[in-house]
Design a protein around this nucleic acid. Structure first.
Length: 360
DNA sequence: CGACGTGTAAC
DNA sequence: CCTTTTACACGTCG
């Protein structure tokens, strides 16, 4: 029997949450920002509602750029309140999960629902579920979402992007090729800036071009695995299952008040970040074996240094090892100033049950 | 093969 | 002028 997957995407989520929460800003351009704290307007745009997007404002853009675009437009700039958005998200995810045979939250504002069993493969039933979900989210949280329905996660994801905001798009199995074919390759999920540039150099513009292109030529540029994966995706094939994934790494990164190579200065920031990480490690009941230092220098070049140790869950080794890694880094990079630093733990071991295996 | 570092991508 | 967090693939080294 054919699978039926829904992809639910909350529309400009952060901005929409604030639009409902803060009185008097409805109807205006709203821009949610992550301030780095270096200067008054340093930082990046995290989310912008459609009024703001009309002005050319996009997420990821420096706040200062967005302010220029919004000049004299009565736009509202707000700092991101992520704990609050997280709590709203959780309530919505609870609604979604109840509708699905299998459920996978992929980010704070997106989830996949496998409804193959419930619908018995009937697309009309899937549409009913989608409409009912949209209604509930609207009633309970005053938010709109865009839903894509398809035979797998890839197609559902592409379908949800088809109509926004407040959209609903169904792409049945026989319609998949016609739906994907005319889209630009850069629109295919998994193809970003670099890959689309490479493909366009080969003369590949649309997803149809990609699907029909000689695999050997793509392999030359992107390697065997990626070439195969992309050509499968181009014809809408995706066999991945809808299921919650355990985190494989947890990290925290932050921006220094000013560029620095002063170990004490930098280490102060690292301790803050590590303490925050420890909270999350504790709440998720994990141990870890690998600790990484992440450095971002003034040219925005990213480097990582890591070390693997015996399984632990404690703050102390996390901090002391990161400090060693930082010392080494500074010694080996005498002329680099750091702009941002981060700490990451990986090689995670989920405790609670798995004690016996590693305990000999 | 495990560990480590980088690049790409998505949010 | 330039945020945050995570995943995964790949190359290299011992």
């Amino acid at each position: 029997m054919n699978r039926i997957i829904l992809h639910v995407d909350l529309d400009s989520f952060y901005a929409s949450v604030e639009e409902f929460r803060k009185p008097g800003i409805k109807g205006k351009p709203i821009i949610i920002c992550i301030y780095s704290g270096r200067t008054k307007d340093s930082g990046a745009v995290s989310s912008a509602n459609y009024k703001a997007r009309d002005l050319g404002i996009r997420s990821g853009m420096p706040i200062i750029f967005a302010k220029r675009l919004a000049k004299k437009k009565r736009a509202i700039f707000l700092p991101a309140d992520r704990p609050y958005y997280q709590s709203v998200s959780q309530r919505i995810m609870d609604i979604l999960e109840k509708e699905a045979d299998a459920f996978q939250q992929v980010s704070v504002d997106e989830a996949y629902l496998d409804v193959s069993e419930t619908t018995g493969g009937d697309w009309e039933k899937a549409i009913k579920i989608a409409k009912s979900i949209k209604k509930k989210i609207k009633e309970r949280e005053k938010l709109t979402c865009s839903v894509g329905i398809g035979p797998n996660k890839l197609v559902a994801k592409m379908a949800s992007k088809n109509m926004k905001p407040d959209g609903l798009t169904l792409v049945k199995t026989p319609e998949v090729r016609n739906f994907l074919n005319p889209l630009e390759v850069s629109k295919l999920h998994g193809i970003g800036r670099v890959t689309s540039f490479i493909l366009e150099e080969l003369g590949i513009k649309t997803i149809k071009d990609l699907a029909e292109f000689k695999v050997a030529s793509i392999e030359e540029k992107l390697g065997k695995n990626k070439a195969k994966m992309l050509q499968e995706r181009a014809i809408g094939i995706d066999n991945s299952t809808v299921e919650e994934q355990e985190a494989k790494q947890i990290s925290r990164i932050g921006t220094l008040k000013k560029d620095s190579r002063d170990i004490d200065e930098i280490f102060k920031k690292i301790k803050e970040l590590a303490k925050d990480l420890e909270k999350r490690i504790e709440s998720r009941k994990v141990s870890f074996r690998t600790i990484s230092l992440i450095t971002i220098d003034t040219t925005l070049d990213i480097q990582t240094r890591s070390e693997t140790i015996e399984q632990t869950q404690k703050l102390v080794p996390m901090i002391s090892i990161t400090k060693e890694l930082l010392k080494d880094f500074l010694e080996e990079n005498k002329y680099k100033q750091l702009r941002r630093v981060g700490v990451r733990v990986s090689n995670l071991i989920y405790r609670k049950k798995q004690r016996t295996l590693g305990d000999f």
